[in-house]
Design a protein around this nucleic acid. Structure first.
Lengths: 195, 195
DNA sequence: GTCTATATAGAGATAGAC
DNA sequence: GTCTATCTCTATATAGAC
């Protein structure tokens, strides 16, 4: 196995375990077992736990950006694209009901640890924030307003994810997603001649 | 010091530290240092970390119920009472921007740990849920609808708390609180003769 | 009830053989 | 690049003196 391929496997395993078990609760031994390498070999690729966390955050930034780019390409207009965002709660329902939102739970954990990578994790929120703001901009909202709507929707989806993992209530998630879609429709400006 | 008084001090310190640093990241030594007793003495009062967590959750259930009872007594009507709930985001703003919501972050952490006290922590959400549902009931909503509104508001405040601790943006919190209050006003049924 | 001292397990991290 | 063996530190938890 090339060094790079092993490194990628480690980061993928760490990414999943950090999400499912939390950063602190995941040990090198856990990750090494997942990738089926020895702890010793592990240190050839990453010297500290913080280095792995940084690599995981970088990877998440990349995959998130790729996902947003995909929605941008697929979605005919801003409403369809924002709907893709809202629908993650349905698409990833099983994992979210078990472990919450990967972004929200990581930032919360790092905040309590006072961890230096907090800023990196917050960058994940920024990606969504600016992408959403751009979409609301395309819907005719000016900069400040578009950003506020983006944060609003981001907060709502965070809240649903948190309650989803606490209550494990599928119907609740679906009702909230419906409500967010309805809210989104209400944001579409009505053409002047129909008012 | 009586055994009971020391025990209370331990639970108070653990409550604060579990919130600020997280459950796993808080050690017995941390709590003992806070209460200024030795680690040895500590084990006279609590034999395992799970026992402390249970005591902390019981304490939170009590203080939360007391808070809700207080709002019930003070608030003239359901709208004023629900406003008290929304305003926690302002009243506890500093701590929430630093550590998120104590209920949401604890349930998230315990979910990832697969901890047996998950149900206890979820009980904290239930307290808010049923209290809020009762208030919406007083506003004329039937049972199912009142519960859905309660969960909706609970989710929104969770989302604001999560983003607040990630972004540390006071203006965002205040704007969302304003928006929730406006939403609440819109839930007040308009008397038939004015429609 | 409170202490010091200690047992034991697991973590992160390193050294050096292959 | 991968391994085994080991160091060190910190955590939970216990034993027993006072």
């Amino acid at each position: 196995m090339t060094a790079e391929a092993t490194k990628v496997q480690i980061v993928e395993a760490a990414d999943r375990l950090f999400y499912e078990r939390g950063y602190e609760h995941t040990s090198f031994a856990d990750i090494a077992a997942e990738v089926q390498i020895s702890r010793g070999n592990f240190y050839y690729h990453f010297r500290t736990k913080d280095e792995i966390l940084d690599a995981v955050i970088r990877r998440r930034l990349e995959t998130t950006q790729a996902m947003l780019d995909g929605w941008e390409a697929e979605g005919a207009g801003p409403v369809e694209r924002i709907t893709s965002f809202i629908q993650i709660l349905i698409v990833n329902q099983t994992k979210i009901m078990a472990f919450g939102c990967p972004v929200g739970t990581l930032t919360s954990e790092l905040a309590k640890l006072g961890h230096p990578s907090q800023a990196g994790a917050t960058g994940l929120f920024s990606l969504f924030r600016h992408w959403l703001a751009r979409q609301f901009g395309l819907m005719g909202r000016d900069g400040g307003e578009a950003d506020q709507l983006a944060l609003h929707l981001l907060a709502r989806s965070q809240g649903v994810a948190t309650l989803a993992s606490a209550l494990r209530d599928k119907a609740f998630v679906e009702a909230e997603v419906q409500d967010m879609c309805a809210w989104l429709s209400a944001q579409v400006p009505v053409p002047t001649h129909l008012q």
